[in-house]
């Protein structure tokens, strides 16, 4: 897929585990895992907003476009 999710990079920078992030963002571990592994088909704006607030970053730090 052309859109790559760099969530694990930001989590490593902020030294946050998946469990901690899911608790703070308010979504399930399963959904977060779907996002992290790049299987997600869509992301809600409110979810992106919550992740960016918790990880203190921009949407562009998490989502990257790589052409095919």
């Amino acid at each position: 897929m052309p859109i790559i999710v760099n969530l694990d990079v930001m989590m490593a920078r902020r030294k946050m585990s998946l469990t901690m992030l899911s608790e703070k963002v308010g979504i399930t571990m399963a959904n977060l895992s779907i996002l992290k592994t790049g299987k997600a088909k869509a992301i809600r704006i409110e979810t992106l907003e919550a992740i960016c607030r918790v990880l203190y970053c921009q949407p562009g730090d998490i989502l990257e476009f790589v052409p095919d």
């Binding site: 979504i27 959904n31 977060l32 997600a40 088909k41 869509a42 809600r44």
Partner: peptide, 8 residues
């Protein structure tokens, strides 16, 4: 359904 299931 898949789209909805894979929407986070």
């Amino acid at each position: 359904k898949d789209e909805q299931d894979l929407t986070v």
